[in-house]
Computed example of a mutant assay.
Amino acid sequence: MSSDSDAPAPEADPVARHTRSRRHLEDDIERDFGENLSYGAYLDLPTLLSAQHPRSTPAQHDELLFIIQHQTTELWLKLVIHELTSARALLAADDHRQALKRIARVKHIQASMTEQWSVLATLTPSEYARFRAYLATGSGFQSSQYRAVEFMLGNKNAAMLPVFAHDPQVHDELSRLLHEPSLYDEVLAWLARRGHAVPEEVLGRDLSQPYTAHPGVVDVFSRIYADPEQHWAEYETAEELVDLEDNFQVWRFRHLKTVERIIGSKRGTGGSSGVPFLRRALELTFFPELYDVRSAIQDLAPQGYHGGEGRG
């Protein structure tokens, strides 16, 4: 049995007891930067933190959340474009390992972007209604970086370009991406260089057009999936692409449900139908044969196994 003498003694100094969380600067920590670069200068925080301009009058508390949510998404999209640009170039140079490293990073970015919807979902319909009119015709549909990501992943659509006609620089950049190989185009070209029978009409197609599934590509992936050990690099790359698309669809779904939660069946601020428009996007696919091949793969039973129903 313990006695009172075994209990830890209370802190003798009440001031010390309430200041134990105070962090003291170490001797070598920089205090006078002079001409040296500081954290804030490196990140250009004065510019970044002054880029939020709520427009509601009188100012609505929740508008800052809406602005920062979308600005943060645009920053992540900038990094996604950076990584996908590198991944395409690495695949073109037959460096698939580094390309997969870039794709893996994109997958983690996608997870962060998806989780952000839970923050915006704290915005109630009545809170949003107080400043929605100040968005005027502004809409996420007009995000040029989001459109760039879709083009880079293969969802090519020249009909989207007129939306950006007001900004010649952005319009020209998207037009360039429209005519460049997508990530999937580079993967298929890489497979062909590794000796896989990717059809010539796929390799030589008009890159500005939406990709159309080809049974010959399904056959290529069927052979890869039938023998993963023999074609491990190709198999791993295919599965990374499936992860990428799966993450994108989860992001789209969370977007849909967040919008539905906040505005219901109202039309979007940019003129879209709102939720129905977002729901149709869930039917889009970047890498169609990677899903078609799942229906083509035959069940592989262990050697010597003959199947059949159990017998009593």
Rank of each mutant, 00 (worst) to 15 (best):
177 L>T: 08
177 L>P: 09
177 L>I: 10
178 L>A: 10
179 H>R: 14
180 E>D: 15
180 E>M: 11
180 E>F: 08
181 P>C: 11
183 L>K: 13
183 L>G: 09
184 Y>V: 03
184 Y>I: 06
185 D>Y: 02
187 V>P: 01
187 V>F: 03
187 V>L: 10
188 L>M: 01
189 A>R: 15
189 A>F: 03
190 W>N: 05
190 W>M: 03
191 L>P: 00
192 A>G: 08
192 A>R: 02
193 R>D: 04
193 R>L: 02
193 R>V: 00
193 R>A: 08
193 R>M: 07
194 R>W: 00
194 R>I: 01
195 G>L: 06
197 A>L: 09
198 V>N: 02
201 E>K: 11
201 E>R: 12
201 E>S: 06
202 V>Y: 04
202 V>M: 05
204 G>C: 04
204 G>D: 15
205 R>G: 07
207 L>F: 09
207 L>E: 02
207 L>A: 10
209 Q>F: 01
209 Q>L: 11
210 P>W: 01
210 P>L: 09
210 P>V: 09
211 Y>P: 04
211 Y>G: 05
212 T>M: 11
213 A>N: 08
213 A>W: 00
214 H>S: 15
215 P>I: 03
215 P>M: 08
216 G>K: 03
216 G>V: 11
217 V>P: 04
218 V>S: 12
219 D>C: 05
219 D>Y: 00
221 F>R: 06
221 F>I: 02
223 R>N: 14
224 I>M: 05
226 A>L: 06
227 D>R: 03
227 D>Y: 01
227 D>G: 09
228 P>H: 04
228 P>M: 03
228 P>E: 06
228 P>A: 08
230 Q>D: 08
231 H>L: 00
231 H>K: 00
231 H>A: 02
233 A>T: 05
233 A>W: 00
234 E>D: 15
235 Y>C: 07
235 Y>D: 11
235 Y>I: 00
236 E>H: 14
236 E>V: 12
236 E>N: 12
237 T>Y: 06
237 T>G: 07
239 E>Q: 10
240 E>C: 12
242 V>E: 09
242 V>D: 12
244 L>N: 06
245 E>Q: 07
245 E>Y: 01
246 D>W: 10
247 N>W: 13
248 F>S: 14
249 Q>W: 11
250 V>T: 14
251 W>D: 11
251 W>G: 12
252 R>H: 10
254 R>D: 14
254 R>E: 13
